[in-house]
């Protein structure tokens, strides 16, 4: 049986699928810009994260920089998802 995926692996997987890249090309240092994700792609990523982890991501596309959810790098997104998961329990 395969090992259950970590949060990081799952988030990278979501981003890779949305950006149509290989998983290896999505590193924790990558930014959304590096991955070529536009605002519409980002909204789909947020949706996939919410569905995958059963969390509510606080994010408004009108003010992405002011959002409580940091999207400045893949690592920040992983950290943000982890804290949303932790907050559930």
């Amino acid at each position: 049986m395969a090992q259950p995926q970590t949060v990081e692996e799952q988030v990278r997987g979501i981003l890779a699928e949305q950006a149509m890249l290989d998983l290896d090309d999505v590193t924790t240092e990558s930014t959304l810009e590096d991955l070529g994700l536009d605002s519409l792609g980002l909204v789909e990523v947020i949706f996939a994260i919410e569905e995958t982890f059963d969390v509510q991501v606080p994010f408004n596309a009108n003010e992405p920089d002011k959002s409580e959810f940091d999207i400045s790098s893949v690592q920040k997104i992983v950290d943000g998802v982890q804290s949303l998961i932790d907050a559930k329990t």
Binding site: V43, I46, F47, N60, A61, N62
Partner: peptide
């Protein structure tokens, strides 16, 4: 809601602090 372009508090067109 899914589009993430809606404001939760008010519609403030052209205002620097508009949020949807």
């Amino acid at each position: 809601e899914g589009l993430r372009v809606m404001s939760k508090d008010a519609c403030r067109p052209f205002s620097g602090n508009r949020n949807g």
